[in-house]
Simulated scan of single mutants.
Amino acid sequence: MTRIIAPVAALVAALFIGGIWWATQGGGEKTGFAQCNATQIAGDGNQIGGPFELVNAEGETVTDQDVITEPTLIYFGYTFCPDVCPLDTARNAEAVDVLAERGMSVTPVFITVDPERDTPELVGDFAFNLHEKMIGLTGTLEQTDAASKAYRTYYKAHDKSDEFYLVDHSTFTYLVLPEHGFVEFFRRDVSAEAMADRVGCFVENV
């Protein structure tokens, strides 16, 4: 867990939260989702998120418009992550199932921050093993960096001379709607049920 709670990562996470609060506070009222915002930092998609170009499990280049065709939960991590990523993405998958039981269709997406090791096949298998609807995405270093910057995520690889190197990274999950862009984010301490409740509020008020 040291890669997540290290001082530098913690500082970046704090700055991230403060930055998006400053950039997007009041956004929920503008978009009509004020009643759904638990974090009070919802945006209209102009400050966080945006276009990206990545590679899917079949090796095909896809864009955000290809991927985000319905309410979507986006998570940035990596397949070699020993604990945090599997737990977070499993939580997201569970929330998607809860929403499905309520008649709402949501797509979970996993974007790697370790494209040098995470091939299309690896991210595809990782995603599918967590949920049959989960989309796994990788890409070049430039594509990955661009997607990460668009969502204001943080990641930094340790010494890559070690084949088992770890990657420090932020652990937020983003809710993105096709017609609205980014509308909310979830910290990793939010339960699957609570996430489903909040996502459901946005879906019902689109």
Rank of each mutant, 00 (worst) to 15 (best):
V113Q: 00
A100S: 11
L99K: 01
C201G: 03
R3L: 08
Y174G: 06
L166G: 03
T153R: 07
I4W: 12
S161N: 15
E60F: 03
M1R: 14
E163M: 14
C81T: 08
G43P: 12
A157G: 11
E101S: 10
C36S: 08
A14G: 15
C201A: 05
D159G: 00
I135F: 03
Q143H: 06
E179R: 03
A146M: 06
N129E: 13
S191H: 09
G77M: 14
V62S: 08
E116Q: 15
I135G: 01
V206R: 10
E193P: 00
V12S: 07
E94W: 01
G136M: 07
P71C: 05
L73W: 02
G45I: 11
I41Q: 09
P7I: 07
P178Q: 08
A147H: 10
T72Y: 02
V123K: 07
A23W: 14
T144Y: 02
A57H: 07
D97H: 04
I135D: 00
L175A: 09
V190N: 05
P82T: 10
D168S: 15
H169Q: 12
P86H: 08
L175G: 06
V84Q: 04
F182C: 05
A57D: 10
E70D: 04
Y151N: 00
G28T: 14
I111K: 09
E53N: 12
K133W: 01
D159Q: 04
L54A: 05
E193V: 05
E179P: 00
V176P: 02
V67T: 09
E70A: 10
K160T: 15
Q143I: 11
T69V: 13
V190I: 15
E53H: 09
D145Q: 15
A95N: 08
Q40N: 13
T63S: 15
S148V: 14
G26R: 13
P82R: 06
G136Q: 08
L166D: 11
N205G: 02
S105P: 01
E53D: 14
A127N: 02
E101I: 01
N92Y: 07
E163P: 10
N92L: 12
F16C: 09
Q143C: 07
I20M: 13
V167C: 03
R152C: 00
A146N: 06
Y154F: 12
I20Q: 11
G124Y: 07
L99R: 00
V84H: 01
D189L: 01
P86R: 08
F172I: 09
G27E: 10
A100V: 03
N37A: 12
V199L: 04
M195G: 04
A13P: 02
Y154C: 04
T112S: 15
I135S: 00
C201M: 08
K156N: 08
R198F: 07
C81K: 09
E70C: 01
V203A: 06
A194H: 04
G32N: 09
V113F: 00
A14I: 14
F182H: 04
C81M: 10
S161I: 01
I68N: 05
T79F: 12
T138D: 01
M195E: 04
T140V: 12
I17H: 12
V190A: 07
P86A: 11
F186P: 05
R188P: 01
M1C: 12
T72D: 07
A10H: 08
A157Y: 03
V176H: 04
Q40A: 14
L54R: 10
Q40R: 15
N46W: 06
F52A: 12
